[in-house]
Amino acid sequence: MNYHWNWGIFFQQVSSSDDTYLDWIITGLGWTVAVAMSAWVIALVLGSIMGTLRTVQSKPLVMVGTVWVELFRNVPILVQLFIWFFVVPELLPRDLSLWVKQDMPGKEFFTATLALGLFTSARVAEQVRAGIQSLSRGQRYAGLALGFTEAQTYRYVILPMAFRFIIPPLTSEFMNAFKNSAVAFAIGVMDLTFISRQMVEESGQVIESLLAATVLYVICAMAANRVMSFIEKRSHVPGFILAK
């Protein structure tokens, strides 16, 4: 193999600017973290609401949750991203449409975050629903019998336990948010994937560039994992045995 290794490449300047390749990578990491974290917040909030709706008494609300999940879960993330980026602006009223297409600041970041957030929310919703349904029916009866309204029963009785049950699957969704954020490069967000491809082109150091991105993605996913297991430890219920 006559590949020419050059680990010093990260400290060399990019030909067209004052930045080093390391500066580039750090910027890329920043965008990846920003997209993944903001999308995760959206996913957690909307996913919790939609997943809960699928379990309530009111049939129309159940319907809303179901449609939401089926819509965002069954279309590939890249297709959703393109729809939000290319199609939706065309459907807006004329002035708004023009503004979005020409002047909207941070349009790429905003669109990528929204698309990833909604996509992930459908997956979170399914976990939340499964968590709620794994609770015994008796817990709901007990909450209601105490005089709680349905909303209070969810708030104080059902959701606190349901979320504890689903920390493991939520952990993988959180990690997926980082991995899936890589689609953002397709609409021009300068995330890790975008930057590493750019670096390959500019420097020709294919392996170093892609390895840097790979390592940073792994570190992000591991960090997400650590955060979740910290939460899991903190929320442990004394004496509670999972198999119920």
């Binding site: 015994s136 008796g138 007990a142 509670f240």
Partner: peptide, 13 residues
């Protein structure tokens, strides 16, 4: 109206 269940149904958390 107080209610007591077969499986207690205390709130475990």
């Amino acid at each position: 109206v107080g209610m007591v269940f077969q499986h207690f149904e205390l709130f475990p958390h």
